[in-house]
Design a protein around this nucleic acid. Structure first.
Lengths: 213, 213
DNA sequence: ATGATACTGTACGGTACAGTATCATATTTA
DNA sequence: TAAATATGATACTGTACCGTACAGTATCAT
């Protein structure tokens, strides 16, 4: 009963233990993403991982705790790079395009798609996990974009009637209907398509909301 | 080993058997949507359903076959109403608005959201099911919209540079970023929000692509 | 060195569940 | 009515797997 932390707030731990914990996490991530939660047995995990089941349980409490740790780690890692650079001297169009490309690239990342499936499959039995995932993903990107657009409106460069809706729908357009195909069947976008999606959506957006042509 | 049809092509069957089959299907649908595939035991199903396990197996082959039948039935049922009325005398805007509202209403339908989760959770182990679901859902709606828009372009009412992209992104905008929240956490839209989403997206779309103002 | 703590390897209890087998009963068909 | 077939109720088989117990070993602090 030494550590029961299923989250990422480590207590005092030996360096070797920390390393071991990271190893568990890495292998669990790999297996969960590949085979899903139910599809991954802990015996199998330990076999690939080395270490013992008891140690695993001392780190993560139970299987659900392990899943939570995996989701937290991976989520924060994936979404960390999505932001506008405020001290950026590029044009509005360039800033939007840069954001748009990074956003599309991100949501079509194979690992994020698999993670999404993983979380969604557990959404009914573990709503907290789903909420955490939404908070750090969908809601966060919405916040980032809306903050930027508000600022641009304040500067008189945009005129938007309903900022929330505009944001929501721009993000929707960037993902496109094709996002469903990625989510369900891993149909990805190539570099060129990402560029096209971003350009097309940003152009349409600016045509609707930019102030001076 | 009488019938091994896991699809919907019924062989010769007594009426009473057909009725029984429907009953299995209805209860299976209910349980799968509520508790997921792995979460639903067949013993539990039979208990609620009446009938016996042997009969169930004679109809659907195995558990996967039952799932397939449920997905096929429900999918066709849900998407059947989504189309443009060709002999419609309404304005372009009205026709688009009518389609947009029906589309949003549909993709935010609780049962369709649950079905989506169900299929997605099985996507890795059963890609065929996922492909079928995509075909009848996402791809089909894309086809319907694009056919309509092509016709409108031919009539000189719209001028669209990339019809596929425009379609894809209009559908994306209609769902909005909020669709993720619905998918992950059943956060639905009310009647007013559906109207707002449709109006906002259709307006933006027409501002970009309509020919004469 | 010595005691305290963390870890390994293995085995096992308990349980859940898909799929099959059995036998009795009902319903159709000839 | 008799044979053939479909169904019901239930028990059973095999298996997979979570979580725990335990005895022995390695690693740390002092």
């Amino acid at each position: 009963m030494s550590q029961k932390n299923s989250t990422n707030e480590y207590p005092i731990m030996r360096p070797s233990s920390l390393k071991k914990r990271q190893r568990y996490l890495a292998v669990a991530t790999e297996l969960f993403l590949e085979q899903g939660y139910e599809g991954t047995g802990l015996d199998q995990l330990i076999k690939r991982c080395g270490g013992s089941k008891l140690t695993l349980y001392s780190y993560f409490g139970d299987k659900k705790g392990l899943l939570k740790a995996v989701v937290i780690e991976l989520t924060e890692q994936l979404w960390e790079g999505l932001r506008f650079d405020v001290a950026d001297e590029k044009s509005l169009n360039d800033q939007l395009m840069s954001f748009a490309c990074r956003y599309i690239e991100l949501v079509y990342t194979p690992d994020l798609l698999k993670l999404s499936r993983l979380v969604m499959a557990q959404a009914q039995t573990d709503p907290d996990l789903a909420n955490f995932f939404l908070e750090r993903g969908a809601c966060h990107s919405q916040d980032v974009l809306q903050t930027f657009l508000d600022e641009q409106s304040r500067l008189g460069r945009l005129k938007i009637d309903h900022a929330f809706l505009a944001c929501d729908q721009l993000l929707g357009a960037l993902k496109g209907n094709r996002y469903l195909e990625a989510l369900f069947a891993d149909r990805l976008l190539n570099e060129q398509e990402i560029q096209d999606y971003a350009e097309h959506a940003v152009n349409a957006f600016l045509r609707s909301y930019q102030c001076q042509g």
